[in-house]
């Protein structure tokens, strides 16, 4: 289904406090402009981002969900981001069966210094989700 005219995707970003949320702040301090259709939810560690959070976001109508944390090996809590990968894969396994396109759910590592990369990831993800059109769950929910 193609997106209606003037439609903007609704994207939820779950980010860890130490790297990815900080990376978004760095984009701000450097005034690196990017697409505004995402909303960020901060947790302390990407390991906290449980399947229930992501699924709830889709359930409520998110067109895309981005999970992001510190680069592997750089976790503020040693290996929390590796737990994040496991939870992400579990989530992806069920969203796939639900029939949500894989590209609606993405995992990215963004460090506190990578403001430009944060902006780039947001722009790319926004465009991917825009190309997919509204989530099947958002269609009825709206």
């Amino acid at each position: 289904m193609s997106a209606p005219e003037g439609w903007n995707p609704r994207i939820v970003v779950f980010a860890c406090n130490w790297c990815s949320y900080a990376g978004a702040d760095t984009a701000g301090v450097s005034r690196i402009q990017h697409q505004p259709h995402f909303r960020m939810i901060r947790v302390m560690c990407s390991g906290r981002i449980q399947p229930g959070f992501v699924l709830r976001a889709f359930e409520k109508g998110a067109d895309g969900v981005l999970v992001s944390g510190c680069h592997i090996g750089d976790c503020h809590y040693l290996f929390g981001n590796e737990r994040a990968v496991e939870q992400f894969e579990k989530t992806r396994a069920v969203t796939r069966i639900l029939g949500l396109e894989d590209e609606r759910l993405r995992l990215e590592w963004i460090s506190a210094a990578e403001g430009a990369r944060f902006a780039q990831v947001i722009d790319q993800f926004t465009e991917r989700v825009r190309a997919l059109g509204p989530s099947p769950l958002a269609r009825e929910a709206r």
């Binding site: 947790v43 302390m44 560690c45 390991g47 906290r48 981002i49 449980q50 503020h76 809590y77 929390g80 737990r83 939870q87």
Partner: peptide
């Protein structure tokens, strides 16, 4: 505890 919250997710 460092407060990462990963155990709560687990």
């Amino acid at each position: 505890c460092k407060g990462c919250g990963t155990c709560a997710s687990w």
